[in-house]
Design a protein around this nucleic acid. Structure first.
Length: 465
DNA sequence: TTAGGGTTAG
């Protein structure tokens, strides 16, 4: 099929989200010879190969494809311009990113604000805050996007005080600026501050006057902060955000919907979570993960497994997190055979390599069901060293099923891993006390005192709402 | 020269 370069360029832009069509367009571009450099082509067409390469680099999703296209671009003498490097830098790991940095310098493109912003983000996400700041100072004219990228650089590197100070000094703030700080507090584990900052945003003049409006990213971030806190206030705040979304958005976005399911699920409001799930028009794997996990954690293990089957029927590929949720359901619902089968076939069936969390689930699964020796066998044969969560699950099982020797063997390993954590000492000590091994119990209690560890008093909370 | 940068779930 014969197509003009301009037409194919437009087509590339439009089909960015459709990988299959993208490959077909790519073939058309190649077979029409538009990627070849013709020195005698009319002046208006001289840039066409560069434009097409740029469009393809930006449209392909994998970093490998992007870099490969860039090498072809150089080989075919299509000169990269200021549009070429942003999408490359966006997906680059640090070493390659620094190579592109020198390329832009060599080609005289380093004053381009788009390239500078991508470089700033590159250094920021690789924990090189001073480099990021240096790039920020290179901007010929500071714009709001550059400021937001710098704001995010402070946030993702754990400098929230600097971020807020920077935010206050910004002459102008848009929804990205506000969202970056709301999200920054959450990233740094300060969920209360994240929610308070969102509150500050909502009462700010710009929002009241409608000049700035929270978007899906803002709502998803603050909802995630709510889900990370316990209690009525966090739930109420989440409900208010939910109300705001219902009043202001035509439909529930994937990320906001997933955050809501996660929030309601964590708070035990399963009917609300299910309602949100049903209302969502587009559901991604993470949406199903949130729903499966909510059911698994609130005594509806069978339904969690049914949901997993439904998800597969919808043609979605389970992720590593899906498997954690499903294995949790198996452990809590005492579905030992199903859980073990899933664990053993997850690589073969879904290409998912078991990580620490999966081992934790399967040890919990076996341990709860009283198969303590099999659980110990799993731990012994793990391809990496078990962490405190895996050992903790095992120790809990040993205590319930009175497997004191096995418990001691693993428990000692654990003390080395988490010396500062009192829970494990107490658990080991109680195991010995329960078996009336008072000398062992007393020894451990002494160790607790000597290590200067304070037992954190346990508390229970009843939510009467 | 028709395009490119900053915030989102577990």
């Amino acid at each position: 099929m014969s197509c003009s370069g301009g037409f194919l360029l437009q087509l590339t832009q439009r089909c960015k989200k459709h990988p299959k069509q993208m490959m077909q367009i790519h073939s058309l571009i190649v077979t029409n010879g538009h990627l070849l450099h013709y020195p005698n082509a009319p002046l208006s067409d001289q840039w066409m190969p560069t434009l097409l390469y740029n469009a393809l680099i930006s449209a392909y999703h994998t970093h490998k494809h992007k870099v490969l296209l860039f090498t072809y671009m150089l080989a075919n003498q299509a000169p990269p311009n200021s549009h070429t490097f942003s999408p490359l830098l966006k997906s680059s790991p640090l070493p390659l990113g620094t190579t592109f940095h020198s390329q832009t310098l060599k080609r005289g493109l380093l004053s381009d604000p788009f390239i500078l912003t991508s470089l700033l983000a590159l250094y920021a996400r690789n924990q090189l805050l001073p480099h990021a700041h240096r790039v920020f100072e290179e901007f010929p004219m500071v714009c709001i996007v550059a400021c937001n990228a710098m704001l995010n650089a402070f946030s993702i590197n754990g400098h929230m005080e600097a971020a807020v100070a920077f935010f206050e000094r910004m002459p102008q703030k848009d929804v990205y600026s506000w969202t970056t700080v709301v999200n920054g507090f959450a990233l740094n584990g300060n969920f209360g501050a994240s929610i308070r900052f969102f509150g500050k945003m909502m009462s700010h003049g710009d929002v009241v006057r409608g000049l700035v409006k929270p978007n899906e990213a803002t709502c998803a971030s603050v909802l995630s902060s709510c889900a990370n806190l316990d209690g009525r206030v966090a739930l109420d705040c989440g409900k208010q955000v939910h109300g705001y979304v219902l009043m202001n958005e035509a439909k529930l976005g994937v990320n906001v919907g997933t955050s809501l399911i996660n929030l309601y699920g964590k708070m035990g409001r399963l009917s609300n979570a299910e309602k949100v799930f049903r209302q969502m028009v587009v559901r991604k794997v993470c949406t199903w993960n949130a729903m499966i996990s909510s059911l698994a954690c609130h005594g509806r293990e069978k339904e969690a497994l049914d949901m997993f089957e439904k998800m597969k029927l919808h043609g979605l590929k389970p992720s590593s997190i899906t498997l954690v949720a499903v294995l949790t359901a198996c452990a809590r619902g005492n579905f030992v055979r199903e859980g073990l089968e899933l664990f053993r076939s997850m690589w073969q069936d879904f290409g998912i390599e078991p990580i620490m969390k999966h081992y934790g689930c399967v040890v919990d699964l076996l341990g709860r069901a009283g198969h303590v020796e099999e659980a110990a066998e799993i731990i012994r044969n793990m391809p990496f060293k078990p962490d405190a969560s895996v050992l903790g699950a095992f120790l809990g099982a040993c205590r319930i099923h009175g497997a004191i020797e096995l418990g001691e063997e693993i428990g000692k390993k654990m003390l080395k891993l988490q010396r500062q954590h009192c829970g494990q000492y107490v658990l080991l000590s109680s195991m010995n006390a329960e078996k009336e091994r008072w000398d062992h119990a007393a020894d451990l209690r002494r160790e607790i005192m000597e290590a200067g560890i304070h037992e954190i008093p346990a508390y229970s909370m009843v939510d009467l709402t």
